[in-house]
Amino acid sequence: MNPDITPAELRQQIRRGDHTGNTSGLCAGFVQCNMVILPKDWAAEFLQFSQLNPKPCPVLGMSAPGSWEIPELAANLDVRSDLPSYKLFENGEFIQEVTDIKEHWRDDLVTFMLGCSFSFEEALLADGLEVRNISEGCNVPMYRTNIPCRTAGRFSGTMVVSMRPFLAADAIRAVQICTRFPSVHGAPVHLGDPSLIGIDDISKTDFGDPVTLHENEIPVFWACGVTPQVALEQAKPPFCITHSPGCMLVTDVPNSKLAIL
């Protein structure tokens, strides 16, 4: 896959079924989004949950009920087909993974698009830092933690984090860089010993792929947009759809618009 492909071209390839993998490192310069789709009568509570937990759930866009378009994020967007992979849930239980949700679409569904750490990876690379999941050509490692989220109505749970390893000096620089991007998770939530946030074995991911952790490197953990999937497991809405971890919506919005200078 050409990393310099435009977002519109990538969405068309995904819509045709020509790209089904993760989107890390693609469409340099453009915002990528996590996704949650819920029935209208659950949407207000999820919006409140997101507002109370802005680190893992920064809302970048929201659709009208029944609409598959979010014009402020991308032209000619169809959220039913423009992500590489989707997860379907019933009563909080994962049912199946699909590459298109048109046959599952309903007029009462509301789509939320949430900021994604793939957006700040570009800023790390531009500063000369290695992003291990990109250099190793795999999905970013993600883990369930014991960090509690604030409760909103039926939504509660603990935070999911993504991890990237760095030498200590580079980790400090990564904190400085990512603090400028609060709309895509901002600064890390933890550095160092994974057991302090409930991760027993860093070689075993809950989502995504493990990456190499070299000698003298420390793991650096960011709040992750997969967190809502844990909250959905707890809340058990009768029906919902999310992106598959690592398989994001790539928008037309430049990453530079999200940076605080």
Rank of each mutant, 00 (worst) to 15 (best):
D170E: 15
P165A: 04
I172K: 14
V175T: 14
I177P: 05
A168P: 13
H190S: 07
F181L: 13
T145A: 13
R154K: 14
M159N: 11
P182G: 01
A174Y: 07
V175H: 09
A168N: 04
I197L: 07
V161N: 06
L167Y: 15
P141M: 03
I172Y: 10
F166T: 05
L196M: 12
Y143R: 10
P188V: 00
I172P: 00
V184R: 07
R150E: 15
A187I: 01
H185S: 07
L196A: 13
S162Y: 03
S162G: 14
S183C: 05
S183H: 10
C149G: 00
P148C: 05
G157C: 03
M159S: 10
M159H: 07
V160F: 07
M142L: 13
F155K: 06
M159I: 15
Y143I: 08
T145M: 12
S195K: 15
R150Y: 07
I147P: 03
P194E: 11
T158L: 00
L191W: 02
M142C: 11
G186C: 01
A187M: 10
P165M: 03
C149L: 13
A168Q: 10
R180P: 02
R154C: 11
V140H: 03
I177Y: 05
P194T: 08
R150A: 14
T158E: 08
G153Y: 08
A152Y: 02
T145D: 13
P188I: 00
D170V: 01
G192I: 11
S162M: 05
R173L: 13
R144M: 10
C178G: 03
D170T: 00
T151E: 15
F166V: 06
V140R: 03
A174W: 10
R154M: 08
L167Q: 11
I172V: 14
P148E: 04
L167G: 09
G157E: 05
G192L: 08
I177L: 07
S162N: 14
V160N: 10
T179S: 10
R144K: 15
V161I: 06
A152G: 05
F181D: 02
M142R: 02
S183D: 14
R164S: 12
F166R: 06
V175R: 11
D170M: 00
G186Y: 02
M159D: 09
T145F: 11
G157L: 02
H185L: 08
T145I: 08
R144H: 13
G153T: 07
R173M: 05
L196G: 04
Q176R: 12
F166W: 09
V184P: 08
R144G: 06
V160R: 06
L196I: 09
V161P: 08
G192F: 09
R150F: 04
T145W: 12
H190N: 05
A169V: 13
H190L: 07
P194G: 09
H190K: 14
N146H: 11
M142G: 11
V175M: 13
L191M: 15
C178I: 00
F155M: 03
